[in-house]
Design a protein around this nucleic acid. Structure first.
Lengths: 147, 147
DNA sequence: AGCATTCCAGAGTCCTTTTTCTGATTCGAG
DNA sequence: CTCGAATCAGAAAAAGGACTCTGGAATGCT
């Protein structure tokens, strides 16, 4: 995929959180999504620092969204996870690629970046909630037409 | 960047090879491009197995292209380095994303993939030869508008 | 034949990413 | 207020990619 696995885990976890202001446990989320539990907890902590989640310790604690899910964009989550310059740089890694010395894929990749960035700022966590978020083992289900 | 660093090194090395059928040494290529020598040599060996380069051992030996540079596409090199399924999979890593359960970025990312794939099969190594292929230290040159 | 040159193949090291473990903090019951 | 369970949070370990090193095999020159 285009992003790191941690970013994918973050998006899946956010989409699985309830809207009603109740707190969810990292452990429960992990088992529900079939993801590595402590690792997911660490990712959720990062989202707390990015002001996407808030957490409460102790009994009755857990994680919940700071805003309604339709006010959290996918692009915001990606930026929090991958850093703001995730989509920067030449697609082929050419150091001199730029406005004065564009590589052959420069323009095509530039158009792609704006297209993806736009889609990511338009899509919100709510748009993800209808999907099947569980882990899928290799060999199960249909593989074709993914993307 | 979108691809691994090894893929970027491969493309740079191919673009730096001469067209006249003479053999170039991995060591010379590496110092010219300011890349790690032994690692570049290993990458070139892989390109030999992919039938993009041919090699001769011993004095007067080295690496050269098997075909003129305009008959080697960028997509071919990427496939050889990253595997044929490099662009497959959901952009966000959602396991269930597919034709029946598309994620919100499914269509946008699908269009992007065909666009990039098309550009990569149209662009050839010759198109890369005009560029400055050397390594650029952090902080040098202009950073903006890259891609 | 012998030697220098160069590619080739594998194991080994370092660093980043991914995953797990232990401890610090909070809340509620008695 | 104290005790204990629940939970987050940061440190520690494992895995994978990037990079290096060493020895071996092939080639050409003398």
């Amino acid at each position: 995929m285009l992003f790191s696995t941690a970013t994918g885990y973050a998006l899946r976890a956010l989409a699985a959180l309830p809207e009603d202001g109740t707190f969810s446990l990292a452990k429960n989320l992990a088992s529900k999504l079939e993801l590595p539990g402590p690792y997911l907890a660490k990712i959720l902590q990062g989202l707390v620092q990015a002001d996407i989640l808030e957490s409460v310790r102790g009994p009755k604690g857990g994680f919940r969204l700071t805003r309604p899910s339709h006010r959290i964009t996918v692009g915001e989550v990606v930026a929090a996870m991958e850093g703001p310059e995730a989509m920067e740089g030449c697609i082929m890694g050419f150091p001199a690629c730029g406005g004065d010395h564009p590589c052959p894929l420069h323009d095509a990749w530039g158009a792609v970046k704006t297209q993806v960035t736009t889609s990511m700022t338009e899509a919100t966590i709510r748009d993800l909630q209808l999907m099947d978020l569980r882990h899928q083992k290799e060999g199960e289900g249909k593989r074709s037409n993914r993307g």
